[in-house]
């Protein structure tokens, strides 16, 4: 390999030399010495002045903003404190949590089923799942909620006819406001989540399935032990989004008078007119719940990502090569 730098330096005897380049008369040894000296100079740490400045400005602005909230009498923090652990608020909190958990539980089960149906070889199952997703994505959530709540007006009795009798119930006894909310949220969420699950299943390389087939694993086992666990890893961030969305969307149950977190504080401020502090009570609780969910997501992702050794080491290698 030619060394253009060296040629330039050694041949350039007449012109003025830069401070970094030695006189050419020294020859090869001098050049090597020069290179060694250059190589020995420690690298300066880069100063990120702009970054530091930006951080200071934002910190100052943020502090000012938070302080304006804290010291603002309109928020009535003492009122917030007095209601924060009050019985109606805690009951509302409990309802919000159980409603979200049950709806999401239902949504996860149904969505895995629907996703598998959409990926099935069987055109009947594919079409059925397609219609399900189409229907529950196109009907507004609030309409769905009110429809489920009023299902007894549309179908007054619910019966399982069997030869020689069967069972029959009054629909209004079965469908309380709470359970109609679980159905409305769960079934609609399932339609959205099924698309995430479907995409995640498709994202698992087909070689994983083929390897399992070649080992003689039956289809159900391939899904449970090979494909689904790997799809989960891909699905966790978007499904966590869905869950957090659902947590706050459950506030719609106010329309059918289920006392969740938001509806409970509304009932209080309708009486006392302390609107802002009570909305703060609900908001702070929502923020706490979402923080817990985000933390859970972080640990779940870390646990599911434990096998991603290659990616970690690649990143580590990339980091090493740039320093």
């Amino acid at each position: 390999m030619a060394d253009p730098g060296r040629d330039a330096a050694t041949s350039d005897t007449s012109g003025p030399t830069t401070s970094a380049a030695p006189a050419a008369s020294g020859g090869a040894d001098a050049w090597d010495r020069h290179l060694a000296e250059l190589a020995a100079i420690p690298h300066a740490r880069r100063l990120h002045l702009l970054r530091a400045l930006l951080a200071v400005v934002l910190l100052a602005a943020g502090t000012r903003l938070v302080w304006s909230v804290v010291e603002n009498p309109a928020f009535e923090w003492s009122t917030v404190r007095s209601y924060f652990f009050s019985d109606p608020v805690l009951t509302g909190l409990e309802n919000t949590i159980t409603l979200t958990a049950l709806s999401m539980g239902l949504a996860l089960v149904v969505s895995v089923l629907i996703a598998n149906m959409r990926l099935s070889d069987n055109p009947v199952l594919r079409a059925t799942a397609g219609v399900y997703v189409w229907f529950f994505r196109s009907v507004p959530l609030l309409v769905l909620l009110i429809l489920w709540f009023n299902i007894s007006l549309i179908y007054p009795t619910f019966s399982i006819p069997l030869p020689g009798g069967g069972w029959s119930w009054e629909t209004k006894d079965l469908m309380t406001a709470y359970w109609s909310a679980v159905l409305a949220f769960g079934l609609q969420q399932a339609a959205y989540t099924s698309e995430i699950i479907r995409a995640s299943l498709l994202a698992v390389p087909s070689g994983q399935r083929e390897a399992a087939l070649a080992l003689g694993m039956p289809p159900g086992q391939i899904f449970r032990r090979i494909v689904f666990p790997q799809a989960m890893k891909i699905a966790v961030p978007p499904v966590s989004n869905d869950l957090i969305n659902l947590l706050k969307a459950t506030a719609l149950v106010a329309f059918i008078s289920v006392p969740d977190l938001l509806y409970s504080v509304q009932q209080i401020y309708n009486r006392t007119f302390e609107v802002v502090p009570l909305l703060m009570v609900a908001t702070l609780w929502y923020m706490i719940l979402v923080s817990i969910l985000s933390l859970g997501q972080f640990y779940l992702e870390r646990w599911l990502g434990r096998s991603a050794g290659a990616r970690v080491s690649l990143r580590a290698r990339a980091a090493r090569s740039t320093t």
Binding site: P205, G207, Q208, E210, A211, A212, A214, I226, P229, Q230, K233, L304, S307
Partner: peptide, 10 residues
């Protein structure tokens, strides 16, 4: 297989 296809999560 050409691409090994080891189960990545195991």
């Amino acid at each position: 297989f050409q691409q090994f296809n080891l189960f990545a999560h195991k």
